[in-house]
C-alpha cells in the first residue's frame, strides 16, 4: 500500500504566454506510515505536487498510483480518493462556511455519505484530536483567531478519517506555541493511528524535529530525497537553492571547525545537546 508517482509533469496555463512548468518528471514512492517533509523555496512546486496526490490536479503527463490503482483510470473514484488522502491547504481557514464550527467539521463526513449521527461522531473525535476547547464548538467559525481557524480546518479534513494526511504549511503565520501544538498533535496522530503524513514546511527546525524522510523541491524537480540527516549534510547545496540547514547544524559545524569533537550531522536540539555533552565527557572535563 503506497502512493507512486511516475514521471509526473505539470504545466500551468499550457500553450499561452504565461506557460510555466511547475513539475518536471517527478518520480516518488510514498510508503504507508511514513512521516515525510517537503521543503523548497517559494514557487518550487510544493503545493502543485501535493494537489496531485489526491487527484485535484491532473498531471499534464505521467501516472499516479494509489495502492496499485491508477488514479486517472476511468472507473477509479477520485471522490473516494479525496476521503482517503486528506489535504489541508495553505491558509485553510478560507474554506470555512458553516454557521457553527461543529457543522463545518461535519461537512467532510457528510459528503462521504455518512448519516448525521456518524458524521457528528467523527466531527467530535476530530475536534478533540486537534485540541480545540469544547466551548468553542457551537460558535461561528468566523469569530475565531487565525490559529483556531487553522485547527478547525485541519479537523475538517481529519473528520474524513483519511489514511494519508497532507498539510500544506499548516503553521504559516502562527505563533511558536500554536505551531508546536499543531505539529505535536499531528505527530501524535501519526504515531497512534499509523497515519501517513506529508508536511510541507518552510521551517527547517520543524522538519528536522518531526519528519523521518525529507524531500527537497527545486524549480519543479526533486533535488534531494532522504533522511533529514542526509539531506542537511548537503547544507552548502541547499543554500545555493535558497534554503538552509537548521541553525544547530551550523553551530555544530562551527564547533567542529574550532576543534571540538562533535557530530557535524546533528539536526535537532536534542541531538546537538547529546553530542556536545559527549564531547565534553570524552575530554574528561567536568560538566556543570
Amino acid at each position: 500500500m503506497s502512493i507512486i508517482l511516475d514521471k509526473v509533469n505539470y504545466v500551468y496555463s499550457e500553450k499561452t504566454a504565461y506557460q510555466i512548468q511547475a513539475l518536471k518528471d517527478i518520480s516518488l514512492k510514498i510508503e504507508d506510515g511514513e512521516f515525510i517533509g517537503v521543503i523548497g523555496h517559494t514557487g518550487s512546486g510544493k503545493s502543485t505536487l501535493i494537489q496531485h496526490l489526491n487527484g485535484l490536479m491532473r498531471a499534464t503527463s505521467g501516472g499516479i498510483y494509489y495502492q496499485g490503482q491508477d488514479i486517472y483510470d476511468q472507473d477509479f473514484s477520485r471522490h473516494k480518493l479525496r476521503g482517503k488522502v486528506g489535504l489541508v491547504f495553505q491558509y485553510p481557514e478560507h474554506q470555512l462556511f458553516e454557521t457553527t464550527i461543529f457543522a463545518d467539521v461535519c461537512f467532510g463526513p457528510k459528503n462521504q455519505g455518512f448519516c448525521k449521527k456518524d458524521a457528528e461522531l467523527k466531527a467530535f473525535t476530530a475536534l478533540r484530536s486537534v485540541g480545540l476547547p469544547e466551548d468553542y464548538w457551537y460558535r461561528s467559525p468566523f469569530e475565531l483567531s487565525g490559529g483556531q481557524k487553522r485547527r478547525v480546518a485541519i479537523a475538517g479534513v481529519l473528520a474524513m478519517e483519511p489514511e494519508v494526511l497532507i498539510l500544506d504549511e499548516p503553521t504559516a503565520g502562527l505563533d511558536p506555541k500554536g505551531r508546536d501544538e499543531i505539529l505535536d498533535q499531528v505527530a501524535k496522530l501519526h504515531q497512534e493511528r499509523q497515519l501517513t503524513v506529508i508536511l510541507v514546511s518552510h521551517s527547517m527546525e520543524d522538519v528536522a524535529k518531526y519528519v523521518e524522510r525529507l524531500i527537497v523541491m527545486n524549480q519543479g524537480s526533486v533535488l534531494f530525497d532522504g533522511t533529514p540527516k542526509e539531506v542537511f549534510s548537503h547544507y552548502q547545496k541547499l543554500e545555493s537553492v535558497g534554503l538552509a540547514a537548521p541553525q544547530v547544524t551550523y553551530l555544530m559545524h562551527d564547533l567542529r571547525k574550532h576543534g571540538m569533537q562533535v557530530q557535524g550531522t546533528a539536526t535537532t536540539l536534542e541531538e546537538a545537546k547529546h553530542s556536545i555533552l559527549q564531547a565534553f565527557a570524552e575530554k574528561g572535563k567536568p560538566i556543570c
Binding site: N54, F89, P92, H94, F107, G156, M160
Partner: peptide, 9 residues
Amino acid sequence: KAQLARGAD
C-alpha cells in the same frame, strides 16, 4: 479545490 478536498461535489 479546498471544498473538493473535503468531498464536495
